[in-house]
Simulated scan of single mutants.
Amino acid sequence: MKWDPNKYVQFADHRDRPFYDLTARITAATPRLVVDLGCGPGPLTHSLAERWPDARVVGLDSSEEMIEQARAKQHADNLSFESADASNWMPKPETDVLVSNAMLQWIPEHRQLIARWLEALAPGAWFAAQVPGNFGSPSHTLMRQLADTERWAPQLAGVLRHDDASGEPADYLKILLDAGFESDVWETTYGQILSGPNPVLEWVRGTALRPVLARLNAEDAAEFEARYAELVSEAYPAIDDHRGGTLTLFPFRRIFMVGRKR
């Protein structure tokens, strides 16, 4: 599956806010190595380099497109970007801060991965991650239901994750506590207001719809998108913004976990 960095940052204001809410809970003073796992195109990783100028900050992502753009546009003396597959990656002993923002939901075994990473981190190290908790929302359920219809099931069977792609807050809290971490786990539902025609479709084009687009040819992808656009516009009706345009309310639940190893 290929990522489109430009499409991903289309809603940067909304996508970036959870990262800052997450990392604000990290109070590490002088970390040696800070890792951003699933760094995407890199601007948020750059903010970590600015926050901790004496640390070595590394952004990791499995998407060559994301890493290429990050290296081209994000520069600091203490910042670098590398390709890595999170499913077989392990933190180095000197890792003092490990951050993962909106990435783990793509990995079915991420709960087991988290446990292994926490075990590998040294005492005093920080772990902070955020995952979407909206897989039961219409934006996702309608996509899965459409993919399961007679028209699309032969091509899309098994492509889309189910509503358990992310765990619940209690699941992550237990993982952190079992690993000996002082833990802070919470959830937030952002009342996101999007503008433009069918903006929820535009949103998922940058994330959840990517596996579908990767599986279908151009003609079929356009057909799938057209039907999905009809369904999602009914689920998220636009309202008049009193200036001649329209706005769409797109609630988005996210789950946060932050901990420091005792």
Rank of each mutant, 00 (worst) to 15 (best):
I67A: 12
F256L: 04
I114K: 01
C39H: 04
S87Q: 12
Q74W: 01
A238C: 12
D220T: 07
S137V: 00
A122M: 10
V232I: 15
Q10Y: 13
N101A: 10
P123T: 06
V57H: 01
S166T: 14
G42T: 02
D85G: 07
V258R: 00
Q105W: 05
W186I: 14
T45M: 04
L173D: 08
T23M: 06
F11Y: 15
L113M: 15
Q69D: 05
L33P: 04
G38V: 09
V159M: 10
K7L: 13
E109C: 04
Q145P: 01
R17G: 01
P154S: 13
V159E: 08
A72T: 13
S87V: 07
G133C: 09
K73A: 15
P53T: 10
A125Q: 01
G259N: 06
A76R: 12
A76L: 11
Q74H: 08
R210H: 01
D36L: 07
P43D: 04
A229N: 03
D220C: 06
R253N: 11
F252M: 14
A115M: 07
L209H: 01
T207P: 02
S183Y: 04
H140I: 05
L121E: 00
T141M: 08
T27D: 13
D85K: 07
W3Y: 13
N217R: 04
A115D: 09
A76P: 02
A115L: 04
A170T: 10
D13T: 15
A214Y: 03
Y190H: 15
T207G: 04
H14G: 05
A147E: 01
F135Y: 07
A218V: 12
F81Y: 14
D171Y: 09
D171M: 11
G180D: 09
E109K: 06
R215H: 07
Q145S: 10
E119F: 10
A147K: 01
R205A: 12
R56Y: 03
A86P: 06
A84Y: 04
P197A: 14
G124W: 03
S80K: 03
D36Y: 05
E64W: 06
M143S: 03
L37A: 15
A125Y: 01
L216A: 07
Q112P: 01
W89D: 02
A120H: 05
V159P: 03
E109A: 11
E234D: 14
N88C: 13
G42Y: 01
L160F: 06
P43I: 02
P53F: 11
A55F: 07
D171A: 11
A128K: 02
V58Y: 01
L22Y: 00
W203P: 03
P108S: 10
L104A: 08
R151C: 08
A226C: 08
A12C: 06
H242Q: 14
A128G: 15
W126G: 03
S233T: 14
A221Y: 03
H242E: 14
G244K: 06
V99Q: 00
A226P: 02
P31S: 10
W89V: 05
D220P: 02
T141E: 09
N101Y: 02
I26A: 04
W3T: 02
R116M: 11
Y8D: 05
F252W: 14
A49G: 09
F135C: 00
V200G: 04
P43C: 07
A153R: 15
S62V: 14
A115S: 14
S47R: 13
I193W: 12
Q130M: 11
R15I: 11
A24K: 13
K92N: 11
L209R: 00
